[in-house]
Structures are given as structure tokens and as C-alpha cells.
Design a protein around this nucleic acid. Structure first.
Lengths: 159, 159
DNA sequence: CTAGTTGCAAATCCTTTGCAAACCT
DNA sequence: AGGTTTGCAAAGGATTTGCAACTAG
């Protein structure tokens, strides 16, 4: 973990930016919550534990800076808040989301199923893919099970 | 076109809603701009030509209503504004976007390349797919050509 | 030192909401 | 006539920005 912070520090400094305590605290929060998709507000809450005097604006500024430097990726699901993910490596972060419209849960498929499609885009459309986002909205296994037990079966064909 | 409006009118009425002149004007704007992904503000501007007295709030309310009725689809790219697309049919609207990070242009691939993936999700994850969104970010053919002519070639490997 | 950075509060942007008046069916 | 819908303006939530004070390198 210290190594990753050091690396980020280098990246910042190479662009003339400083790794302030606030920024370091923010990065640590992101490192400690790599599995989640934290919103700026989430990050703010968590950072305040480490550095209570930090302001929300600073968190926003830091996240934006890190985003520009491709240290984090700014994600956007349909819920009106931006979410931030630490990038695994400096380049690709290909994963897919399964968003359940019933319970709001979100899981990930980390496999990259899109390689072949990207090749087609390159060939058929002349489009160079830098990144992609694939979100599936639907009903998760858990909610489906719940539905099945509650009502015997009366949802699919109201016609 | 009149037929499609009539159909939407029916849908509204079947739920106890009315097709008011403002709503009709809004739907007409959407029909006349099916190719675009209009924001609420865009729609508002265009509707004002037909019905100058309309308010922005009404446009928002209408779009939300149409969205709930699955007449339009509310799209969300990362730019802080919701965009609205008329649905081609009442159920599936599977298309993919190619968003160019250089010029901001967006084109669509209407083919549905994801059928097989959705089957895998159903089988391997027990996840029922209702809808999906696949966005590719990258560089479009036009910008790539422009890049190639401007600089001879010096962008890929800064290391 | 001194340019980059911070915290606060005010400002902005998009979207939603309260309410009385106006309207469709 | 009665519930819906409208327009306005004010409220709301997320994010940004101005600015004087502060600090990392």
C-alpha cells in the first residue's frame, strides 16, 4: 500500500502537484475501499475520520485531480452522483456491472467479455476503443427468488 | 407519425393520463429528433417553438412521465445532463454508443451484439437482464485521420 | 520563499416541488 | 364538475468556484 501511495506521489510531483496530507488521506481512503464505488460524499465522510478538518470541496478537487491523472476513474450510474474507482493499473479497467433494479445492488463481472467486439469496432467502424462501460440492468438472483416465493407467478404477462 | 402519437395517447389514457397540448408538442419534438439524444433543456427549446408558453418544469414532468411509461428512455452519459430517447418499440432498445473523446461526437451501433452475453448472465449469474447499456469511449475514425496527418506519429509510447 | 492548496461560503447547474390557476374529458 | 396538469418561482442536491489564509517542498 505504501508503495502505491509513493507511486501516486511521484505522478503528482511529475506534474508539479503536491501530495498534501488531505490528498494522501483521500488516496488512502480509496485504497482501503477499492471494492466499492464511493461517491464524493462517501469519500468525504471516510476522510473526515482521518483528517477531520478537511472540506468537501477539497475532496472534490482531489478526486477531479486524480481523475485527470487517470489514478481514479469517475463512474456514472444513473443516480445523480459521480462515483470514483481507483484504477487497477494505469491503463485498462474493464469490468461490467450488474445493477439490480429491485434492490439496487450492484455486482461486477471482472472478466472482459468484450475483446472480440472491440476488434470488430476497430475493423468495421475505424473506431479506436480506449475504454468502455457495460452495465446491465435487471433482476438479481436474490430478488428473483424472492419474487417467486411471494407471488406464485403473475408478473410477466399482464396482457 | 400521427399513428405513433395516437398510440402514445392510448398508452397515456390507459393509465389515466391525458395527452395535453404540451405533452403532444413534447412528443412531436422527440419524434422529429429521433436521431438525437436531447437533454431536457434541448427539448424545452424546441418545444417552445411550437408552444411558447410551456414551462421547463412541464417538460421535465412530461419526460419523466414518458420515461415511466417506457415511451422514452432516460440516458445518462457522463456530462451531468440526462438525455432522452424515444424507444423504437415498447420493449427493447438495445443499442450501443461510440463516444469520441476527441471531438465529442457520438454514433450508434444498432445491432445487438450482446445476446450471447445476456444468455451467459442468465445461466451463470442467475441475473435476468431487462436492459443494458454499452458505451465505448475512444477515438473516432475522423479524429484518428486528423491525428495521423497533423503529427507524423508520436503519441502512443511516451515512455 | 512562493506557487500550489486549503476551507469556507457563496454561486452554479440541473432537476424537482409547492401551489393556485387553468384545463381536459 | 373533478381530478389532472400547468407555469411560475422557490427549493433541492451535487458540484464548482472566489478568495484570503496556509503550507509543502
Amino acid at each position: 500500500m505504501e508503495a502505491r501511495i509513493e507511486k501516486i506521489k511521484q505522478q503528482l510531483q511529475s506534474q508539479g502537484y503536491k501530495l498534501t496530507p488531505q490528498r494522501e488521506a483521500t488516496v488512502r481512503v480509496l485504497l482501503e475501499n477499492e471494492e466499492d464505488h464511493l461517491s464524493a460524499e462517501d469519500v468525504f465522510m471516510l476522510v473526515k475520520d482521518k483528517a477531520p478538518e478537511i472540506g468537501l470541496a477539497t475532496v472534490y478537487r482531489t478526486l477531479e485531480l486524480l481523475s485527470e491523472m487517470h489514478v481514479v476513474e469517475k463512474l456514472n450510474f444513473g443516480d445523480g452522483v459521480a462515483r470514483y474507482d481507483l484504477r487497477t493499473d494505469s491503463n485498462k479497467h474493464h469490468h461490467h456491472h450488474l445493477i439490480c433494479v429491485k434492490c439496487g445492488s450492484m455486482s461486477e463481472i471482472l472478466e472482459d467479455w468484450l475483446g472480440p467486439l472491440e476488434e470488430r469496432l476497430e475493423k468495421e467502424y475505424g473506431f479506436t476503443v480506449l475504454d468502455h462501460r457495460l452495465d446491465f440492468q435487471g433482476i438479481c438472483a436474490k430478488c428473483r427468488a424472492k419474487e417467486a416465493e411471494n407471488s406464485t407467478d403473475s408478473s410477466n404477462e399482464p396482457a
